[in-house]
Design a protein around this nucleic acid. Sequence first.
DNA 1: CCTAGTACCTTGCATTACAAGGTAGGTTGT
DNA 2: ACAACCTACCTTGTAATGCAAGGTACTAGG
Lengths: 117, 117
Amino acid sequence: MDEKQIMELENTRAQMRKGILEFCILLVISKGKIYASDILKKLEKTDLIVVEGTLYPLLSRLKNAGLLEYTWAESKSGPPRKYYKLTKKGKEAVKQLAITWNKFNKSINSLINKIDQ
Amino acid sequence: MDEKQIMELENTRAQMRKGILEFCILLVISKGKIYASDILKKLEKTDLIVVEGTLYPLLSRLKNAGLLEYTWAESKSGPPRKYYKLTKKGKEAVKQLAITWNKFNKSINSLINKIDQ
DNA sequence: CCTAGTACCTTGCATTACAAGGTAGGTTGT
DNA sequence: ACAACCTACCTTGTAATGCAAGGTACTAGG
C-alpha cells in the first residue's frame, strides 16, 4: 500500500473517531464528576486520542447545549479544576445516543455480512 | 428537552453518521459494481441518509486515493453511468477499516458497560 | 523569584458534509 | 420537431469542527 492509500485509510479512521467523540466524552462523564485532563487520560485508554484543543471547545458546546454542568474545585497540586457532570438532560441524551449507536452498528453489520455471503 | 438540546443531539448523530460514511460507501461498493445513484438508494435503506453533493466528491477522493476505480456503461434510460468497484487496495482498506470499527465498538461497549455497573 | 508542572482557554488552518445550482444525455407526449 | 421531464453526472459556497500551536494563570520546590 503506498503513501496515498495509507493516508486515506488514516483519514477515514480519523473520521470514525471524530464521529464517536462526543458520545464517548458524554459516556466518560456519565460515570461521575471528572475534569478535562482526566477525561483525556480515560479516552486514551480506550484508543481514542483526543487533544486539549479539541476537548475544551467541545465541553463548552455541550455545556451550552445544556447537557453538562460543572463546579470548580481546588486541587492539591496546581490551579483549580472544573469538574463536569451530566445534567438530567445530558443523561437522557446519552441514552438516545446509545440507541443511535446500536442502530448504526446494525446497519454496518448487515453490510459486512452481505459481503461474506 | 428544549430545542437547543435536540439540536445538539441531532448534531452528534450527524457526526456519527459522517464518521462511518466512507466506510459504509466502501462496504456497499465491495458488494459489486454500482453507480452513484444506486449507492444513494442502498445507503438510505440502512438509515444512512447521504446526498449527491456529499457522495460525488467522496467518490472522487476515494478514486484518487487508489481505493476505487470505475468504468463507463450505457444506460437504457438516461445518460451513461460510472460504475465503481474496489481496487485490490480498496479491498484491503475495507478489511482494515472493519478491524478499526470493531475496536471502536469494543471501546464504546466497555464504556457503556461501566455505566450499568 | 525562577523554573517546572498542571490546568484552563483561544486562534488560525484544513477538511468536509451539505444545500443549491449547473450541464447534458435520453425518453415521452403533442 | 420541440417541449417537458427524468436521470446522471459534477461544482460552488457555506458552516461546522478537529487539531496544532500558542497563551494565561495558579501552585510548589529549590
